[in-house]
Design a binder for these strands. Structure first.
Lengths: 208, 208, 208, 208
DNA sequence: GACTAAGCGAGACGGTACGTCGCGTCTTAAA
DNA sequence: TTTAAGACGCGACGTACCGTCTCGCTTAGTC
C-alpha cells in the first residue's frame, strides 16, 4: 500500500511507531513484574528502541510508567440502567473488583500508590482523570436512586464513593483478602442501609 | 548481681545497642524521604554501623524498612469503653485517621503497598500482625454492641472492618482527600445503619 | 577535513581517552603497591573513570592488572648482531635482568605468578605473547650461532631458553639474590658449554 | 589411659591439639584451592576452631599460610650416593620436579612468590630454611664429583644451583610446560658440560 | 532528485546503591 | 580466666540501572 492511501488505518510516522512500541513494551513488562521490576533498559530491549529515545519522550522511568498506568486506569465502564439502585451499585463495584482482581490493573495500582504520594502533579492528574470519574458515576447512580424514591435525599456522595471503593482497595492493598465475586454485593449491602429512605419509626444511632 | 540490673535502664549489650542504632536511623531516614529514598548505605552512615552488620540482620533493604514499618504500625490503641458503639467505632477510626494523617505513618504506609504486593512473606506478616489486630478490635467493639442490644447479631465483622478502614486508606492512597477530624464520624455514620438492630417494619433492600 | 587529522597526534575518541586513562592509572598504582594493593576502586578514583566503565572492559580486577602487565611484559628488545653467540646471549639475558631488576616489572612478575597459576586463559595469553617471543629470540640467536659454526646442530632450544631465563627468575622469585650486572654473563657461561660444538676427543658425561 | 601416663605418645594439651587442628585444616584447604582461595574463615570452619583462636597464634592469614607452606617446603630429601655426579644431580632435580609436579607443593609455591616479595622477614626465613638447604645439597654433590675427579675444581656452586632449579621453577611459574620425567635429565645434561673437567684441546667460547 | 538536519539505534559513560565476602578486632557467654 | 563463638567496622568486590552523552545512520522534508 502506498503511503497516505486512504481508507486503511493512517500510516504511522516513524515517531508514532516508535512511541507505540515503547508503550506496548511498557505495558507488557508492567504485566509481568509490575512497576517494581520495570526498567527503562528492559523497555528499550523489549521494544527494540534505544534508551535515549525513551528519555527523549519521558523525563524518567516513573513518568513513563505512570503515563501508561494512567492511560490504563482511566477506562471506566458506565453502568447501565438496572432494576434498582442496589443492582446498579453492585454492578459498579463489581466492575472495579473484576478489573483489579483479574487484570494487571491490580498490581499497577499497587505500584501507583507511592508515586501518587510523591508526585503531586501526578496525584492531581489521577484525581481529575480517575477518581473524579468514579465519583461522577456514583453520583449518577445515587441521583437516579433518589429520583426513583429509593434513597434518602441527603446522601453524602463523596463518602459513599469512598466506602464502596475503599473496601475494595483495602483488600487489594493491605488485607490481601481475595477480590471475589461476592465482595461487591457484600460491600453494597453494608453501605446501602445508610442510603435508603428511612422507614417510619426507624431507629437510628445518629445524634438528634 | 547482673551488671546494671538495678534501677536504671537495663544495660544493653553491644548487639542490642547496634540494633537500636540501626532502627533509630532507619526511622529517622524514613521520616524525611520515605521508603523511596531510604538506602542501606544511608542507614549505615547515619547509624555509625557497618553495612554488613545491617545485612547480617535483614536480608535486604526492603526487609529492614518493613521491619521498622511493621513495628511502627502494629501499635494499636485499644478503644476504651464509651457510652455507645457509635462513639467507640468513631474513636477507633479516629485513631487510624490521626496516626495516618499526622505522623509519618501515612507516607510509610504508602511506601508499604508495593512491598506487600511483591513480598508474600511480608504480606503475611502484615496481615498477621497488623490487619488481624484491627479486625480483633473491631470484633471486640461489635460484640460489645451486640451484647448491649444495640447491634444486629448477624454482622459481617470482616466486611465492617474493611468498610471502616478502607475509606480511610482510600483517601490516603488514592483520592488524596484530607484525613480530617470529621472523617471518622462520617465513615461510622455511613456504615452504622447496616449494623443496627432492624426496627420493626423497617424497609430493606436486601433480598429475602 | 577530519578534525585533528593533520599533523598532530590523532584525535582520540572518548572511549579511547577513557581506556588510556584507566591503563595509565593502573600502571601508576601498580608502580606503588604492586598487584597486591591494586584495587578497581582505586583505579576508578585515580583515573576519574566510573567503576562500571572499568568492568565494561575487563571482567575483573585481575584481568585489568594482567592486561597492563602483559602489555608491559611483551616488550622484547631484539638483540642486535654481535661478535659471537656468547655476547648475544649475554645481551639477551642482560636485557631481562635489567628490566626485572630496575623497573617495576620485577614486582609485577612476582604478582603475576599466582594469577597465571589460577587463570588458564591468562596463562595461555602469557605463553603466547610473552614466553613464545622469548623462545623465538633464543632460537634466532642459536640458529645464527649454528650457521656460524659455533654451536652444535642438535641444540634443545626450549631447554636452553628455560635455563637462561629460569635462573634469572629463580633469583627474582625465590632465592632473593640480587639481579646484578655479572649475572647474565655467569648464566650464559654456565649454559654455553652445552651448546658449543664438541671438540674432537671431548669427554662427555652423556650416555652413549 | 590416665593423664600424664608415661610411655605412650605424649598426651597433647588442648592448646597443642588446637594448633594441630588449625595446621591440618590449613594444609587441607591449601591442597584444594591453593593460597588464593585460602581464607581464615574457612580454616576456622574446617578445623572447628574460632577465628580469634587463629589470630591469637598468627598475626594474619598470610602468616598462617606461610607457616604451613614453609613447613612443607623445607622437607628436602638427601640424595644417596650413586654411580656418578650426573645421576646424582638428576636424582636431586628429579626430586624437585616430582614434588612440584605431583603434590600440592606446586600451587603452594606459586602462591608463595608474591608473599616472599612482600614480606622480607618471610623471604629471609625462606632463604635460610629452604634455599640454603638446596644449595648445600648441590654443594655436597658437586664436591663429591670434584673429589671423584669428574668435575672442574672452580665450579660456581650458587650458579649451578640456580640453573638446575631455575629451569624447573620457570616451567612451574611462567612457561607452563609440564613437569615431566625427562625434564630433570635434560636440565642436568644442559648444565653438566659446564661442570665437567675440560678435555685437552677443548674449544671454548670463554674469553681468554 | 539530491541535500540536509532532525530523529534514531546503539551503547559507552559517570554515578549511586546494591548485596556479598573476607579481613582482623572486639564482646560475650560458657567452661 | 581462658577460650569458642561469632558480631562488628571496614573496605573492596562485581552487578544493575539510572539518566546523560556521543556517535554514525536513517529518514523525512526542503530546495
Amino acid at each position: 500500500m502506498t503511503p497516505g492511501a486512504s481508507g486503511g488505518p493512517a500510516r504511522l510516522t516513524r515517531s508514532e511507531r516508535t512511541e507505540a512500541a515503547i508503550l506496548a513494551a511498557t505495558r507488557e513488562l508492567l504485566a509481568k513484574g509490575g512497576v517494581r521490576e520495570l526498567t527503562v533498559e528492559g523497555v528499550a530491549a523489549c521494544s527494540g528502541v534505544a534508551k535515549s529515545t525513551i528519555y527523549r519522550r519521558w523525563r524518567s522511568k516513573d513518568e513513563l510508567a505512570l503515563a501508561v498506568v494512567i492511560d490504563m486506569v482511566q477506562t471506566v465502564v458506565a453502568v447501565p440502567s438496572l432494576a434498582d439502585t442496589r443492582s446498579e451499585l453492585i454492578a459498579l463495584v463489581q466492575g472495579a473488583v473484576r478489573v483489579l482482581g483479574k487484570t494487571l490493573m491490580g498490581s499497577v495500582m499497587q505500584g501507583l500508590v507511592p508515586e501518587l504520594a510523591t508526585d503531586s502533579e501526578l496525584a492531581r492528574a489521577f484525581r481529575d482523570r480517575v477518581v473524579a470519574l468514579r465519583v461522577q458515576e456514583v453520583e449518577r447512580l445515587l441521583r437516579r436512586g433518589i429520583e426513583r424514591g429509593e434513597l434518602r435525599t441527603d446522601i453524602d456522595i463523596g463518602l459513599t464513593h469512598e466506602l464502596l471503593f475503599g473496601a475494595v482497595y483495602y483488600r487489594l492493598f493491605l488485607s490481601g483478602e481475595p477480590l471475589d465475586r461476592k465482595l461487591a454485593e457484600r460491600i453494597v449491602d453494608g453501605v446501602l442501609p445508610g442510603l435508603l429512605k428511612p422507614a417510619a419509626g426507624r431507629r437510628t444511632a445518629r445524634p438528634t
